[in-house]
Design a protein around this nucleic acid. Structure first.
Lengths: 244, 244
DNA sequence: GGTCATGTTTGATCTAAATCAAGGAAAAAT
DNA sequence: ATTTTTCCTTGATTTAGATCAAACATGACC
C-alpha cells in the first residue's frame, strides 16, 4: 500500500537534486516541478510497479533500494536493474513496462503523473537532455551486466557485484578498509542479479571471507579488507567500469 | 578503410526514414539534416568504432549488419548488441564508448559530426524525443537479453535468437514457412551473442534441423518450418517480447 | 526469553555445457 | 582447378555450477 507523504521537501533541498532527472533544471524549472511532484512511500517487500500495470506515474527514487526483475513462466527470475537513490523509474512515451519493480528496503519516490511529465519533457529541454543521458548511462550498465552474465565465472560475478557496491557507496577521502558498506540484498536476491543460485553465492562469499578479502560485521554490513585482490577477482582490466 | 559515398540519397527517399533518429522530423528539419549528413561505408569485418576511440561522429545504420561487443582481458567476448538498419550508433553527450562496433556485412552509415549533432538535439526537440525513445527501446532489448544470458538454457537461447531474427525480418502477410530468412552471423558470433560456445550452437541448431523446426538452404539462409515449436522452445510466455 | 520465519552454510551428487580433439565442407584466394 | 582459409560438425571427456538435502544462524515478534 502506498502512502502520500505529508512532509514535503522543496526541490532545492532534495538530497538527489544534482543527480536526478532534474539535475540540469534552473530555479524557474524547479518551481514547475515543485507543483507537479508528490511523494509516495513503499514498505520493504512491496511491489512498486507490476509488469501488467498501466503506467500512470513516473518518478525518482529518493531513498531506499528497489529492484527491477523479469521472470520466466516457470519461475526463473533475473534481476535486470538495481535502483538506488536518484535513479529514475518509468517509461515516458510508453504506458507499459516489461518488468517488475519491487522495494527491497523502505522506499520513498518523488512522483509525477505521466501525462504532465511528458508535457514537461516536450517543453523543458533540460529534462529531456538529462533523460537521454540517464537512459544511455543505464544502457551502459545493462551492457556491462550482459558481459558479466554471459561470460564471467561465479567468482568474477561476485567480485564485480561487490566492487559495484563499493563504487556506489564509497565516500571519497575515507579509508576503504574500515569503511562499513551496506549489502541491501539477500543472497537469493544477489543470485538473481548475477544469474547464479543462492548456494553458489554463499560459497563464493565464504571463500572471499576466508581469503581475507571481505569481512562481515553482520549479515547486511561488510568492509573490503583487500581491495586489490577484489579488483583482480573481477576479471576486468584495471581501469574500472561504468557501474558507478 | 572508410570511403565517402558519392551517391547521396535525399533524406525523404531514405529507406530508414521512418524508423531512424529522424523519424519525427518535419520537412524543414530534414533539410537541416540533409546539409549535415555524410555517408561512410565499411567492408565486412572492418571495425567501425573501437573502445578506445574518441567519438567524433554518430550515425544511423542504413544497410548491413554490425555488432557491439565487449571483451575481457583474457579474450572472452560478449556481444551486447546487434545493429540492423535504422539503429543508431554513438553516444551524444559523451565522447567515449565502452565497446567495439564491427561491421559484419558491408555497411553503410549515415553520419553526423558529433558537435553539430549535439547542437541539433538541443534545437530540434523532435530529434531529442526520438533519441530518448530509441535509447529506452534499446534498454528494453538489453534487459530482455540479460534474462536470456542469466537464466535461459542453450536450447532456449538459440530459439529466442532465431525468433528475434524472424521478428525483425518477417514480412507481414507472407507465409512464414517458406519465407527465406537471412542469418547474418557465423556460429561463433552467435555463440558470443548468446553466452555459449560455438560447439553448443552447432549442436543445438543441428537438433532443431533434425526436429523439423528449421531448414537451411545454405549457411546463411534458412526458413522456419514449425513456428509454434520454436516459440515454445524460447521459454517465454506466448505474448511475445520486445525484441522487435 | 522463547518461538518462528527467514536467511545462510555446508555437504553429496548430478548434469548441462565447456573443453579438447579431429575431420569434413564450403568459400575464397591464387 | 587447386590450394588455403574459414566454418561447421561430431565425438569423448571434463568441470563449474546446479540441484538435492539437511542443519544452523539470526533477528523479528509475541
Amino acid at each position: 500500500m502506498t502512502i502520500e507523504l505529508s512532509a514535503r521537501v522543496t526541490c532545492t533541498d532534495c538530497p538527489i537534486r544534482h543527480r536526478a532527472v532534474c539535475a540540469y533544471c534552473t530555479g524557474d524549472e524547479l518551481d514547475v516541478l515543485e507543483q507537479l511532484k508528490s511523494y509516495k512511500t513503499f514498505k520493504a517487500g512491496e511491489p512498486i510497479l507490476w509488469r501488467a500495470d498501466k503506467l500512470t506515474y513516473v518518478g525518482s527514487l529518493v531513498h531506499g533500494v528497489a529492484t527491477l526483475s523479469k521472470t520466466l513462466e516457470d519461475g526463473r527470475t533475473q534481476m535486470v536493474g538495481l535502483l538506488l537513490p536518484s535513479d529514475f523509474i518509468g517509461r515516458p512515451g510508453r504506458s507499459e513496462i516489461e518488468f517488475d519493480v519491487v522495494a527491497v528496503t523502505d522506499v520513498t519516490l518523488c512522483c509525477f503523473q505521466i501525462k504532465p511529465f511528458e508535457a514537461l519533457i516536450a517543453s523543458t529541454p533540460h529534462v529531456a537532455q538529462r533523460l537521454v543521458e540517464m537512459a544511455l548511462d543505464e544502457l551502459d550498465v545493462a551492457r556491462e551486466w550482459m558481459l558479466l552474465l554471459g561470460r564471467k565465472t561465479a567468482r568474477e560475478k561476485i567480485a564485480t557485484f561487490v566492487q559495484m557496491l563499493v563504487q556506489r557507496q564509497h565516500i571519497a577521502g575515507t579509508d576503504l578498509p574500515g569503511q562499513a558498506l551496506s549489502l541491501p540484498l539477500t543472497q537469493e536476491q544477489i543470485a538473481n542479479y548475477l544469474g547464479l543460485t543462492l548456494e553458489t553465492v554463499s560459497r563464493q562469499l565464504g571463500i572471499m571471507k576466508k581469503n581475507g578479502i571481505l569481512r562481515f560485521s553482520d549479515r547486511r554490513h561488510f568492509e573490503v579488507i583487500d581491495f586489490p585482490a577484489l579488483q583482480l577477482a573481477t576479471g576486468d582490466d584495471s581501469d574500472g567500469g561504468v557501474l558507478v
